[in-house]
């Protein structure tokens, strides 16, 4: 992990997960795992945040919500799909209301595997996201605008 110049803010949205990954994301913020030691802070506002943690798959009802939240985030931004459901639909892939993984709706930068994803894996994902964010910032400075 490179030394980052900026403290990225993250926010979390529950797609249609079973809660398992959500409470693991929250557990990452707690004293035991303490993701804040990497300079990341959890916020409730998409407009303030650089990293979107999204758990669960996309369904017909929340498709627009996810698109809106993604649009409200400023550039550059990183999307992390957490859990098997967010990657492919997982055990619910065959359900009638599920459209598939998060990448069916918005571009995803990182996938964290697991059902439910373990906090260690989520922390690893966030740290890799810091590098991607740094890279995206550099590209923007060079004039190559990336999303």
């Amino acid at each position: 992990m490179s030394f980052i110049k900026k403290s990225p803010w993250m926010f979390h949205y529950d797609g249609s997960s079973c809660n398992g990954c959500d409470i693991e994301v929250l557990a990452c913020l707690m004293p035991m795992y303490d993701i804040e030691r990497f300079g990341v802070i959890n916020t409730g506002n998409p407009k303030h945040s650089d990293i979107l943690l999204i758990t669960g798959s996309i369904n017909r009802q929340n498709e627009d919500v996810v698109k809106t939240l993604y649009g409200q985030m400023g550039n550059p931004k990183v999307v992390i799909a957490i859990g098997t459901c967010a990657a492919s639909g997982g055990i619910f892939a065959e359900c009638y209301n599920i459209l598939g993984g998060v990448n069916t709706t918005i571009p995803v930068d990182l996938y964290v595997p697991g059902c439910a994803a373990r906090p260690e894996a989520i922390i690893d994902g966030v740290i890799q996201a810091l590098d991607i964010l740094e890279e995206k910032q550099k590209q923007r400075k060079k004039g190559k605008v990336t999303k």
Binding site: N19, C21, I23, G56, N62, F92, N97
Partner: peptide, 30 residues
């Protein structure tokens, strides 16, 4: 916003596999 329609999975997964679906109705009281 979280509706998956997992009740209909009983037509696609056998009753022995369905317990994995039942456990994933909710991750807190799985």
């Amino acid at each position: 916003f979280v509706h998956r329609g997992l009740e209909l999975l009983c037509k696609k997964k056998s009753f022995k596999d369905l317990i994995y679906v039942a456990e994933r109705v909710c991750g807190i009281c799985s």
